[in-house]
């Protein structure tokens, strides 16, 4: 059965719910790094499973050709995958901000990316789930690649959704090059849960 996409009103509510989740994630990042984080307006779209990689590639077009990516799956009443995508210079800056001095330290950079991703994805999605009263659990994040072109980070042979909801939020620091695109994919199976939660959220006003 084909899942019906969110209508305009549901989309608008979702965008606001994500905006609030993003604000919580931004505040967590600001606290971790002791910096000011610039937030941007979140973007939500309904895409074919096959189109996902192309759509994300468009979002980061012209911003470099080498990226580091971390994937974190989430499940329970909402399910899907989140990717945090970091620019190459951003990783070094992040290491500097966190006081990692020896760049060659084995695994230090990857560990840092995992920690930051865990914080951003957790704060953002928990923020969303709490507002719409849905349960959410997380798998451990994994580094999918460092210094790779974008499509190599996002490819998955196991993703079998015909359609999914693509959510993108962007964090950048006021000073320096660090930026992180947080891309979340929600499966078709989650859409009805999401829809019921959004209606409930709307009715709270």
């Amino acid at each position: 059965m084909k899942t019906e996409a969110l209508n305009e009103e549901e989309n608008e509510i979702l965008q606001e719910v994500i905006n609030i989740g993003m604000g919580q994630a931004g505040a967590s990042l600001a606290k971790l790094l002791d910096v000011f984080v610039n937030l941007s307006v979140p973007r939500v779209s309904w895409v074919n499973g096959d189109d996902f990689v192309t759509q994300v590639a468009k979002l980061v077009e012209g911003q470099g050709d080498s990226w580091a990516g971390v994937r974190q799956a989430f499940y329970n009443q909402l399910e899907g995958e989140a990717f945090a995508i970091y620019g190459a210079n951003g990783c070094q800056q992040l290491a500097g901000l966190m006081g990692y001095e020896d760049e060659n330290e084995d695994g230090a950079e990857e560990e840092l990316l995992l920690d930051v991703t865990n914080i951003l994805v957790g704060a953002c999605l928990v923020g969303v789930a709490n507002q719409i009263s849905k349960k959410l659990d997380f798998a451990a994040p994994t580094v999918v690649g460092v210094g790779k072109p974008i499509h190599e980070l996002l490819y998955s042979r196991d993703r079998e959704w015909d359609q999914c909801l693509l959510i993108e939020v962007n964090f950048c620091l006021e000073e320096g090059d660090f930026s992180c695109h947080l891309v979340m994919l929600m499966s078709e199976a989650s859409i009805e849960q999401l829809r019921s939660g959004l209606v409930q959220f709307m009715e709270s006003y």
């Binding site: 606001e16 905006n19 609030i20 993003m22 931004g26 505040a27 600001a30 000011f36």
Partner: peptide
């Protein structure tokens, strides 16, 4: 706003806002 960074609050107050109300 949903931008709940303490520095965001401080910045808007410095710029002349009377108060900050957190979303939701």
């Amino acid at each position: 706003s949903a931008d709940i960074q303490p520095k965001a609050k401080l910045r808007v107050i410095t710029l002349g806002a009377l108060a900050f109300l957190q979303k939701p």
